[in-house]
Amino acid sequence: MKIVVIGGTGLIGSKLVRELGGLGHQAVPASPGSGVDTLTGEGLAEVLAGAQVVVDVSNSPSFADDAVMDFFRTSTGNLLDAEEKAGVGHHVALSVVGTERLAESGYFRAKIAQEKLIEDSGRPYSIVRATQFFEFVRSIAEAATDGDTVRLSDARIQPIAGDDVAGAVGRAAVGAPLDGTVEVAGPEQFGLDELIRKGLAFQGDPRDVVADPDARYFGALLERDTLLPSADAQLSTTRFEEWLPLNPPPAK
């Protein structure tokens, strides 16, 4: 089966391409670097020719409110139109657990808009919502750092390894369209501040992580359970403390 992976050179996309290829599928990574630009439509018709499935794991290069909204609206609209013309039978998109509860954030408003475009398109689809990735511990810390202090909410979070996200998206891609949403999460919960504290400590990062219930998460104020998956979410098995030593930070 030919499966085109939009954002196929990124964190999740590259893992997904390897996984699908290992299962015997023709997994085609598509990105601006390969001549496929979903914002302009360049290269879409060519790469989608003969494809049965399109998986969108792309992300906006800018998280500024207007830019991220334009990215997801334009990119998703162009993809859906090109898929219809090419006769693609299944659109799969990666989204975020709790998106509908995070509308204070410009980024998550854009993800809400993306999901609605897919749902209203009339195209067969599956949306995979994942909790936060282990790989983003440092970027979360950077966004919340003031001097040597990292201020984060103590809201609960149930993070997941990127490999497990790719596995869940891959299962959706080779399965029948859900015409709905599935949630995936890791096996254990942390306070958001606790997760980042553990991750930075393992990496030898001296910053002080402080729990602050008023700290915003990419612009949104969190309630205790905002980031948690539903009771019927699919749970992976990789634990954070098992993952950490296998994924050391890049050498300085």
Rank of each mutant, 00 (worst) to 15 (best):
A64K: 14
R216E: 07
E115F: 00
E183S: 03
V54Y: 01
F72D: 09
N59Q: 12
D225G: 05
D148V: 09
H91S: 05
L16A: 01
T237I: 06
I118M: 10
G199L: 02
G33T: 15
S105E: 12
Y107V: 03
V36I: 03
G186I: 05
V96D: 06
F218P: 01
R138N: 04
Q52N: 12
V5D: 00
D65N: 11
Q203K: 15
V169C: 10
E242K: 10
P32L: 09
A155H: 12
G204F: 10
S75P: 00
R216I: 06
P248H: 07
D120W: 12
L79Y: 13
R156F: 13
T99G: 01
V209Q: 10
F133K: 11
E84F: 09
R109F: 11
A233S: 09
S236L: 04
A155M: 08
G199P: 04
D37E: 09
A64T: 12
G204R: 10
H91C: 06
T237K: 14
S121Q: 12
L228N: 04
E119D: 10
D37L: 07
E84H: 14
A30Q: 09
A27E: 07
A173N: 11
Y107P: 09
A64P: 06
L44F: 12
I12C: 00
A161M: 00
R129I: 00
V174L: 03
F108Q: 08
V53M: 02
R18A: 13
D148T: 13
V97R: 08
T145P: 00
G7S: 09
H25N: 07
R216T: 14
G41C: 07
